[in-house]
Computed example of a mutant assay.
Amino acid sequence: MRSVRKPKGEGHARRGEILAAAEQIFVAHGYEGATIRKIAEAVGLSSTALYLHFKDKAEILNEICLRAFSMLLERQVAMSEAEPDPEARLRGLMIGYVQFGFENANAYRLAFMTPTILSEDGSEPVSRKVAAELFQKFESGVAAAVEGCVEPDRVRALAQVLWASIHGLVSIIITKPQFGWEDQRTLIETQVDILVRGVTCP
């Protein structure tokens, strides 16, 4: 059913509706299978009217990614500031990352499991910069937790491996939910415990 056209002055709400609809359509049909027409119809707009909010399909996808990265970064910053112990902070960063993926499965798929799409004009999406800042925050957490245990020149590789490991847990569970998984809390705590024990000093 087409949604009711909103009156003037509610453009921000309409933009949010477009992003919410696009998120579901991108996941259901893939980026290539999604069209501006499908997204516009889902929110009760003409394709022409949708272009008043977003210049192309790539901009919509990158806005979804930007929101996901920004939301996760906000959580990671809060965790880093609230936990003074480096090892506990690293655990919190990883647990927070996995929980975010489970809580926002569609956005996670698009932000972390879909290639970055450049806009038609080839401009660099802002989402990439926020994603880089997000990884830097995680890398800093890893560096603090393994100080004195790991050579400094190996910290970045270690951070990438840890990130890839927790990403793997999120991605396989949200793409294969029918498997007989243990409860999410047990899986998260088991994986994070193994990872942290493996990289920190005994």
Score class of each variant (00 low, 15 high):
31 Y>N: 12
85 D>M: 01
200 T>W: 02
172 I>K: 15
55 K>P: 00
150 V>E: 12
193 D>A: 08
106 N>T: 07
25 I>F: 03
194 I>N: 12
54 F>Y: 15
42 A>T: 11
40 A>H: 07
74 E>H: 07
14 R>N: 00
70 S>I: 04
174 I>T: 06
95 I>C: 10
154 R>Y: 11
192 V>P: 02
99 Q>K: 06
71 M>R: 14
159 A>D: 11
58 A>W: 01
151 E>R: 14
105 A>Q: 04
72 L>M: 03
26 F>K: 00
194 I>H: 12
105 A>W: 05
101 G>C: 01
11 G>Y: 01
48 T>K: 14
68 A>C: 07
23 E>C: 11
56 D>E: 08
108 Y>T: 10
191 Q>C: 08
183 D>N: 12
202 P>H: 12
74 E>M: 01
36 I>Q: 15
65 C>T: 07
142 V>R: 13
181 W>H: 11
46 S>M: 05
35 T>E: 05
53 H>I: 09
179 F>K: 14
17 E>W: 04
29 H>R: 15
17 E>C: 02
81 E>F: 02
152 P>G: 13
100 F>E: 00
134 L>E: 11
45 L>N: 14
114 T>E: 15
97 Y>L: 10
169 L>H: 06
134 L>C: 07
143 A>C: 06
190 T>E: 10
42 A>N: 05
76 Q>F: 08
89 R>W: 00
68 A>N: 02
5 R>D: 13
123 S>C: 00
63 E>I: 05
153 D>H: 15
163 W>R: 12
161 V>I: 14
34 A>H: 02
63 E>K: 01
